[in-house]
Design a protein around this nucleic acid. Sequence first.
DNA 1: CTTTTGACCTGACAGC
DNA 2: TGCTGTCAGGTCAAAA
Length: 272
Amino acid sequence: MPELPEVEITRRGIAPHVIGRRVERIDVYDRRLRWPVPADLETRLRGLTIDRVDRRSKYLLFHVGEAALLVHLGMTGTLRTWHDPPPRKPHDHVDITFDDGTVLRYRDPRRFGAMLWVASTADGHPLLDALGPEPFDAAFDADYLWRVTRRRHAAIKLALMDNRVVTGVGNIYANEALFRAGIRPSTPANRVSKARLARLVVAVRAVLEAAIAKGGSTLRDFVGSDGAAGYFQLEYFVYARAGAACRVCKRPIRQSRLGQRSSFYCAHCQPR
DNA sequence: CTTTTGACCTGACAGC
DNA sequence: TGCTGTCAGGTCAAAA
């Protein structure tokens, strides 16, 4: 579910409730996430104070001194804070209780998410070390995109969704950004001109910013840290709109498949 | 190196 | 009311 905007919404919602708070207890009800929740997580984290909450790609990092708790929401994960949490429901896998009684609850029906321990953020972590630039980094520009796509013959949409190229862009926002940039998703990456890559950089940032401003996208189950839904799905130009009229030219939106993911585009607004 | 495919897991929905 | 098949926001690992 969550792409960069939803993870960022989660981060902003949670940070004020947990920064400066000391972890009093950790209850892991089900360790079977994408990787098992480390058996020693409780003993490592208990008693430590959260200094900062960062987002890197779609990962959240709860910094505690040199170390950090790393959380990924997978496809269906949500993190919510409660002052007085309701009874645990199925798929509520972890509760972290702070010294002021705040409870941070991790829920993830499909269990594609992760909760791991990073011993030293200075030393890096295998999941973080190979990541490309953040979309809002100055390093993500047309020259950079041009350089890293020279040997890529596969579709530009696959490059855009590759976290080594740029982080945080998933299926929804890749489709939306390519529409805004007027680029057909199936175009081989190395055949997109530098001028159009420059448009793509602008479009990626614009769509992510707009989504964050709307609280992210709630398709099935995403909610922010306070339980509020997002509304950006109402502004989609192409995603999940197969057969519907293009908001710009009124021609039908088409659907295809690239790398086992649904792709949506307007054949007129996104010419070959 | 790039590219493709399968795998992980649950729930929702369409069609029979 | 079942049952089966398909699809879903992610991304890793293996194989080509």
